[in-house]
Amino acid sequence: MTITPHRGGFIIIATFILALILTILPLPEWARPFRPAWHSLVLIYWCMATPQRVGVGVGWLLGLIVDVITNTLLGQHALELAVTAFIVAKLHRRMRVFPLWQQAIGVFLLLMLEEIFSIIVMGAIHRPTPALSYWATPFIGMLLWLWISIILRDLRQRFKVN
């Protein structure tokens, strides 16, 4: 068994940084509850495509950074993204061969799971229950997945990330 050297790490980091910027980019007041979870989408993609590089540890670190930049409870996003990364790493072989729309449904379920985690944490620290628009983000994330996965796949092939 030969070990192929890792390549294109900078692309992975660059896409994560871009996702983090999109996560805190100012939006108009009405649009704020509908902001998709960019960081989760990018994490899911890289976990699925390169599970040997991006796994639970990266997910946890990314979540910690999200917690710091959006000023949520330290560990909230870290927990969500670590669990997401774990599930994707377990199922990546199955997810890769799904057609795109089935993948999107899988992504929807993962994003929904994150939202459920979030709402449990918010309940535990006595934050008020958010409005119904809170549940819209997984749907938006699911629709965005169709584009994000194609864009990231092109990037991965062009820069031969493995």
Partner: peptide, 17 residues
Amino acid sequence: MAAAVLASLLMMVVDHR
């Protein structure tokens, strides 16, 4: 995995309390 979950839970509790 278990370590990450435990660490997050611990951090959340410590951060909140």
